[in-house]
């Protein structure tokens, strides 16, 4: 996706990423974490704010720094880095609220033609999975890198 993104830092294993959001509320350190779920080869993608002075992570804050599209594009780029290292893993993602999940769905819809080149995307609806359809309402997403 040819969108503006922030510079990424990562742990050695590419499980934890960090970037700095710059906007109308200043500089906010963001952490993106891929966490192993109970299911083999399925990792949960989550992100939140890091307190730069303490290193504590806050996954409930709403920073509203005016750069949501750039933040989402940067989080999306971690998907490429993570799945480049772990090509057989699935990634589960959902928002902390219905509104946030809708925001993610809108982001996927907006760039679907590009994303679908590299990723298989399933949407969760009525406790079942289906291939992602634009503008459909989903509770969560399963994403896997295609073997091109």
């Amino acid at each position: 996706m040819k969108l503006p993104k922030y510079q990424l830092s990562s742990s050695d294993k590419l499980l934890t990423f960090e970037f700095i959001s710059e906007g109308n509320k200043g500089m906010i350190h963001k952490i993106v974490k891929y966490q192993a779920t109970h299911y083999k080869n399925i990792y949960n993608l989550a992100f939140g704010d890091k307190d730069y002075s303490t290193g504590d992570i806050d996954d409930t804050s709403i920073s509203n720094n005016g750069d949501s599209e750039k933040v989402l594009a940067t989080v999306g780029s971690t998907l490429y880095a993570f799945t480049d290292k772990y090509p057989d893993f699935w990634i589960y993602a959902t928002g902390s609220t219905v509104a946030r999940t809708r925001l993610y769905r809108m982001g996927i819809t907006k760039f679907y033609s590009e994303i679908a080149i590299d990723f298989e995307i399933l949407g969760e609806r009525n406790d079942d999975w289906e291939p992602f359809q634009k503008n459909s309402s989903y509770g969560g997403f399963l994403i896997k890198r295609k073997k091109n």
């Binding site: 996706m1 993104k5 510079q7 990424l8 830092s9 990562s10 742990s11 050695d12 590419l14 990423f17 960090e18 780029s77 971690t78 490429y80 880095a81 480049d84 590299d118």
Partner: peptide, 8 residues
């Protein structure tokens, strides 16, 4: 589309 990532 692989981002350039700095290891920290």
């Amino acid at each position: 589309n692989i981002p350039i990532v700095k290891i920290d």
